[in-house]
Structures are given as C-alpha cells and as structure tokens.
Simulated assay, not measured.
Amino acid sequence: MKKLSFVNKTIFITNSLVALLLLLSYLLPYVAPKNFAFLSVLSLAVPLLIILNGLFMLYWLLKAKKQLLLSGLVLLLGYSYVGSLYKFSSSKNIENGDDLSIMNYNVRLFNLYNWIDSDSVEQDIMNLIEKDNPDVICFQEYHPHERVNLSSYKYKYEKLSGNRIKYGQAIFSKYPIVNSGSVEFPNTANNAIFADIVKNNDTLRVYNVHLQSWRIDANVEDLKTEDSERLFNKAGETFKMQQEQAELFIAHKTQSPYKMIICGDFNNTAYSYVYKEIKGDLKDAFEEAGNGFGKTFNFKYFPVRIDFILVDDTFAVDSFKVYEEKLSDHYPIRAKINLN
C-alpha cells in the first residue's frame, strides 16, 4: 500500500469497499428479508459487484500489483455466483425429439400502453412463438388481445383480474391439462398458477410464478431523481412481500404429487433469499445449459437475470435460450427438457 501512488491508493480503497460488499452479498440467500430488508436490496446489485471486482482484478493484473489478490480471492470464494451471472461454456443443445419445450415470457400486456414505439409488438411476439413453437408457454402480465392468436395451443389456464383491463398469468399447452389452480397472494395482483400436464405417460406440474415487482422505474435517469431513502424503503418492503409470497408458494409446492417445472418472473436475482427458497433441490435451466450473461430484463447498465425456468433434478436440460428481441421489458427464455 505504501508503494502505491495516490491515485492507486484511492482505487484500492474503492476496490476494498466493492470487494467487501460482494463478500457480504454471499450471505444474502440465507438472510430473510423480513429480518434485514435493507440488506436484501443488495441482491439487485450483485451482478454489478461481480463485474466491478473482475475489472479491478484486471486493472491490478495489468499493473502487475499484488492487490489483484483481493478481488481475485473474493471472486474465487463466490465462484458459484460468477457461474450464475455468466456461463463461460457454449450453450448445450442436444436434439431430442421427445423433449418437452417450455417458454417463459413476461409480455408486459403485449405493449397495451405503447411503452415500445411500435404497432407490431403483438404480431412480432406471435411470430417469435410460432417460429420457436414451444410445447408449453408461461406468460406473466398476460392480457387477452384480439391480435394475439394462440389457437394452436389447445389447452390453457388463465388467472386474470382487473375491472376495465383483465390481466394476470397464463399457461398455454399443446398437451392436455388435467388439473389447474392458483396460489393467491394477499394485497396484490401477483400470484402463482399451476397446470398439471400429461405428456405420454407422464403427468407434470407446471408452475407459473410472478412475485411482487419492485415498483421502481429501472431507468437510471429516473432513479437519480428518486429520494434514496424512499427508494430503499420501497425496495425493502417489496422484498418482504416477496418472502411472504414465496412462503405461500412453497407450502403449495411441497404438496405436489408430481415432478415439477417452475417458470416465472421472480422480480429478484439468483442471489436472493426467495430464489434459493423456491429453487430448493431443482435445477436452474440456465445454469445447466445456457451461456453468456443470461440477461432476462431490459436494464441498460448491467445484466439482470430475474426470469427463471427451474426443473426437477431428475430431468435433463438439453438446451436453454434467451431471445434478444426487445418486445417487452423482459426477454423470453426457453428450455428443452428430457423427462426420461
């Protein structure tokens, strides 16, 4: 430290703070938001903390300074975190005609309020679905629309609410749905729905989970105008609600007589308490077969993965894909699963 210039000392102090925050974040999956709501907010910043520590390590490496060990050791301790952010291997893509193909997509009401300056969003989404042709689709923020034609899916289950505008969650399937239902969350329009689907001789339970949204504009320029204390309080309350919703969902999930697939928009990252609790012993399809950042939410400044497909640990994930089409504030994801 004594041999460092003033500029490098300042950089190392900043590096130390960022490394400490990342180290602290490793505790987040084990800390209930109800107990430490403020700390839970840190889960949203974990992707940025990983990237910053990687950049600090690279900086010190280029300078040939031993200070690279600080971020290097913190990243090494959290190697599974890095794997949840970025998959260095190429995408797994096994062709198997007996796979179940499942897509998850928060469609943001099919652009009902023109958030995207385009008159063709509904048709573009339909074109994407028709091209990929998944067997099952889980929609969040679904709104029945006259220009949305899903007639190729013979079976569906919708749970909609609202007076003037009906919206909610939906599951569409090419295979018979023999049972369905909803897990209601109090004081919100969010919920979790399920459909028991029969493929060949297998009955599978597909869950579609939409946890409480942040109620924060993700646009960085708008975030700058928010009062920081109000912002953190709002996020903390949201994470408390998410914990309560996750607990209701898990109580229902544990009663399932079938192997399951959980899709959804968790409105939280893979570094959060609710993700860990919901995932349990299931496999994360991105971690099994994806590559790159796996970014599922359109946040400009660093990659955020808050949409998931989790599958029973006896299933093999043969492929996973994140689509790059910007037709919502979320990107669609699709996994192909070998049930055998």
Rank of each mutant, 00 (worst) to 15 (best):
D281E: 13
E277H: 05
L109V: 08
Y301T: 12
L62R: 14
Q140C: 11
A285N: 10
D313F: 00
I177H: 08
Q245F: 11
Q123K: 11
Y59N: 12
Y59H: 15
I50S: 05
S101Y: 06
D202I: 07
K92N: 11
Y79M: 09
N53T: 03
L327T: 06
I171S: 02
K276V: 00
I306S: 05
D135T: 11
L21R: 05
Y142I: 05
Y271D: 05
I129G: 03
E237W: 07
K224E: 14
Y167H: 13
V317F: 04
L70I: 09
Y323M: 13
F194S: 01
G83Q: 11
L49N: 00
K295I: 04
S319R: 11
M126V: 14
E324P: 09
N111Y: 01
L20F: 14
F266K: 02
N179H: 11
A218K: 04
F88C: 04
L62D: 13
Y323R: 12
Y113P: 00
K92R: 15
I171C: 02
T314N: 13
L22A: 09
T188W: 03
N111K: 03
F194M: 02
L58S: 14
D98Q: 13
D227G: 08
L128Y: 05
F249E: 06
L61E: 10
R334P: 01
N191Q: 13
I261V: 12
N111G: 09
L204H: 06
R164H: 15
Y275L: 07
D135L: 08
V82H: 04
K321F: 01
L70N: 08
R305K: 15
I50E: 03
Y30S: 09
S180I: 00
R305S: 10
R164W: 13
